[in-house]
Design a protein around this nucleic acid. Structure first.
Length: 566
RNA sequence: CGGGGUGUAGCUCAGCUUGGCAGAGCGCUGCGUUUGGGACGCAGAGGCCCCCGGUUCGAGUCCGGGCACCCCGACCA
């Protein structure tokens, strides 16, 4: 492609609306055009890159035995009502009406349709297992689109769905997809962390996220360097530091006027924060949930929500707490048998805790579970943090920011039950199919690639997804011999199968160099009068600081070698 | 949805406090000089000052309402 003819121009200053690096660079490089909040057009260079990512995904999916299909993005609302996800998704679901006032949705994902599709085409265990996938545009009315292509309202996603006759089959399909994902991210040149993830309200047991490390990411991942444990913050567990063992002592009251926070109580009573039990109150559908956790820890509301399976869980207001006859700052479960109490497992890590006395200005010493209070639910609902102990070994957890580019789930029979996707086994008995789903954000992956691969001058595309492999710069294009050599190199390299972006513009050297750095193709060739005198062309990798002169007749081999080794 | 910010040339922004000819740099067009890291000169094109209403002799500027976009949070499989 001749740069002089290519749609999309580079700009010197980043538009004010862009704050994230990938957003700025993609706008400056002329890769994307914003149409509205969270809606972007891909210009030719970006679209080439996107298609390369798609091709790698297709190859690996096909290799894993998945079959490509294409399903409509526009779908009737009623299949979403059957699974109840119209309500679960709420305002995130784009809704439209057709001319006959029939309710339709712009699909945010395709479980409903794919399950219906498979239901009408698969009846027997002989047809299973089955994995289908597509690369389709998804629509989500996100509360807040942000950071360019990282969170948008219309985006390309590769989504795959597996159908098996049982859980064992699902595990095999899941592992196949997991391996395919590893291959895909390896081949795109984008190293990802595989982390345990929260599967959400509808997901089944297992779920893994593929996360690209980047500061701009929305995900926080906790990792352990020594044993390899890695989990999303929403899901991460951790090892508790054990408290000193001692005998249970009798309850006693202590005056603690004006101490309503854990820090104040610790200070007033003269104990570590970990020796206090903290009480936090939530409300779900009008019901009060009393949560007890060790004083040095915080509650992970995702874990809490998953444990309780209660909708619309939220922190209770001061009025709601007082209405339940609870004294804020001095509350505990001691003597409050009538309340619904959720205890974090951390309360088992010690004895003789300080708790509220359920009256203003007093705490109790030496509260012990289960001697002094009960718990209706005991679970891990604690928020992990950097510096906490790894749950598997004795090392410490590190926190990193990342971009979620892939997510795989074991779904189970949630959709097949509701939509009647069943098969007959070898005994003629009917069962629901067991499903898994597997997504990759294609556009987000492109943005994440830029986020992860750049320097202060611009993008540094990984070879496999670069829009072009070679950026050919003609420096003195009004000089006949330079122009001639440039043109012939352009033809020759293309003849050898290389993808060449040819800067044939009448621009100064500085402009061309800076644009080449900004656009970030892997290999740069410079044809100039100066180099011509040596009968050579300068060859340089974008990822390296300096290039070298290569005799003209060796250019093709040199470029080939550089693309291979990089 | 809560909090904050911004809307003036394609881009970055000044002008608004104190109402009185619509501005700069970059980019764009033409001509000439340049040519290895965002060159220079000359000449030019380019505006619904986000929209609607109000105040005023007069509004980019003041007042009211709305919209859009960005950031933080909530939310988000």
């Amino acid at each position: 492609m001749r740069l002089s003819q290519s749609l999309g121009k580079t700009i010197r200053e980043a538009p004010a609306e862009a704050e994230t690096v990938s957003h700025q660079l993609m706008l400056r490089a002329g890769l994307i055009y914003q149409v509205a909040a969270g809606l972007y057009a891909y210009l030719p260079l970006a679209y080439r890159s996107l298609r390369k990512i798609e091709e790698i995904i297709r190859e690996e999916m096909n290799l894993a035995g998945a079959q490509e299909v294409h399903m409509p993005a526009l779908q009737p609302l009623d299949i979403w009502e059957k699974t109840g996800r119209d309500k679960a998704l709420g305002e995130t679901l784009f809704r439209v009406k057709d001319r006959r006032e029939r309710d339709l949705v712009l699909a945010p994902t395709h479980e409903e349709v794919v399950t219906s599709l498979v239901k009408s085409n698969v009846n027997s265990y002989r047809d299973l297992p089955l994995i289908v996938y597509q690369i389709q545009t998804k629509f989500r009315d996100e509360p807040r689109p942000r950071a360019g292509l990282l969170r948008v309202r219309e985006f390309l996603m590769k989504d795959a769905y597996s159908f098996d006759s049982d859980e064992a089959g699902l595990s095999i399909s899941y592992d196949k997809m997991s391996q395919a994902y590893k291959n895909i991210f390896e081949r795109t040149g984008l190293p990802t962390l595989v982390v345990e993830a929260d599967s959400g309200a509808i997901g089944g047991k297992d779920s893994q996220e593929f996360v690209l490390q980047a500061e701009a990411g929305e995900d926080t991942v906790l990792t352990c360097e020594s044993c390899g444990y890695a989990a999303n913050l929403e899901r991460a567990s951790f090892g508790l530091n054990p408290l000193p063992a001692e005998k249970e002592k009798p309850l006693s009251e202590i005056a603690t006027p004006g101490t309503t926070t854990i820090a104040e109580v610790a200070n007033a009573v003269g104990v570590e924060e970990s020796r206090i039990l903290k009480s936090v109150f939530y409300i779900s559908e009008g019901k009060l949930v009393f949560v007890v956790i060790r004083g040095d820890l915080e509650i992970n509301e995702i874990k809490l929500g998953n444990t309780l399976k209660m909708p619309d869980l939220r922190i209770a207001s001061g009025e709601e707490v007082r209405a339940a006859d609870i004294v804020p700052g001095y509350a505990s479960a001691v003597g409050r048998e009538e309340l619904f109490v959720v205890a974090d497992e951390s309360i088992n890590s010690g004895v003789n805790f300080v708790v509220g006395a359920n009256k203003d200005g007093y705490h109790l010493l030496n509260a012990n579970f289960p001697r002094d209070f009960k718990a209706d639910v005991m679970a891990d609902v604690a928020l992990a943090k950097e510096g906490y102990n790894c749950p598997n070994c004795h090392s410490t957890l590190n926190a990193r920011k990342g971009i979620e580019v892939g997510h795989i789930f074991k779904l189970g029979s949630f959709y097949s039950d509701r939509l009647g996707a069943t098969y007959l086994d070898e005994h003629g008995k009917e069962h629901s199919m067991i499903m898994g789903c597997y997504g990759i954000g294609v556009g987000r992956l492109l943005a994440a690639a830029v986020e992860q691969n750049h320097d202060d001058k611009g993008i540094i595309f990984p070879n496999p997804i670069a829009p072009y492999q070679v950026h050919l710069i003609s420096l003195n294009s009004d000089n006949d011999s330079v122009a001639e050599l440039s043109d012939s190199l352009y033809q020759m390299l293309q003849g050898h199968g290389f993808e060449v972006l040819y800067d044939d513009r009448e621009e100064s050297a500085g402009v061309k160099f800076n644009d080449a750095d900004l656009l970030g193709m892997p290999v740069r060739l410079i044809v100039s009068q100066r180099n011509l005198r040596e009968q050579a062309v300068e060859v340089k990798l974008r990822s390296e600081d300096s290039g070298r002169l290569v005799p003209i007749e060796e250019i093709v081999d040199a470029v080939g070698a550089m693309l291979k080794t990089d």
